[in-house]
């Protein structure tokens, strides 16, 4: 079963240890980076890793604007509630395991070397093939 662990720039409930990263000491930043790297390495080691990507906060909304016309772009919208920062895709045995891993990821250290307690969104993927039930 595949799950998306979604990190938000904005839109998730506020983390307990909410000091922005540019206010951390360099050593705290290093410790955070190392934790993230080790987390990915652990997933690879357990055979549960599928993908991880990070997104820039920039970008725009784009939509079709009728035949023969270029698409309309707009934004970025400062007021938009949700802003995705990146994700992990994991392939695990159960929902419980997905939650356990999201908990681990959320324990990444932040200011003062304390866990950030960041809220991560865990979302199941659709399965590829429907179950035959006839």
């Amino acid at each position: 079963m595949k799950y998306l662990l979604l990190k938000h720039y904005r839109g998730a409930p506020t983390a307990a240890n909410d000091v922005p990263m540019d206010r951390w000491t360099p050593a705290e930043v290093d410790a955070h980076m190392r934790y993230m790297h080790d987390f990915a390495a652990r997933l690879e080691e357990t055979g549960e890793f599928v993908d991880t990507q990070a997104l820039l906060p920039d970008g725009a909304f784009v939509r079709y604007d009728g035949p023969g016309r270029p698409p309309v772009t707009d934004g970025p919208f400062a007021e938009t509630k949700d802003l995705i920062a990146g994700w992990y895709i994991i392939d695990v045995e159960s929902w419980e395991r997905a939650v356990e891993l999201a908990g681990e990821l959320s324990a990444a250290p932040g200011a003062g070397g304390e866990p950030i307690h960041e809220w991560l969104e865990v979302r199941p993927f659709f399965t590829g093939s429907p179950t035959v039930n006839e």
Binding site: K2, E44, T46, G47, E48, F49, V50, D51, D91
Partner: peptide, 14 residues
């Protein structure tokens, strides 16, 4: 199963 080859190799050796 739509996972990277390295992931599947790890799963099998574990």
């Amino acid at each position: 199963y739509l996972v990277p080859e390295a992931t599947m190799a790890q799963r099998i050796s574990r």
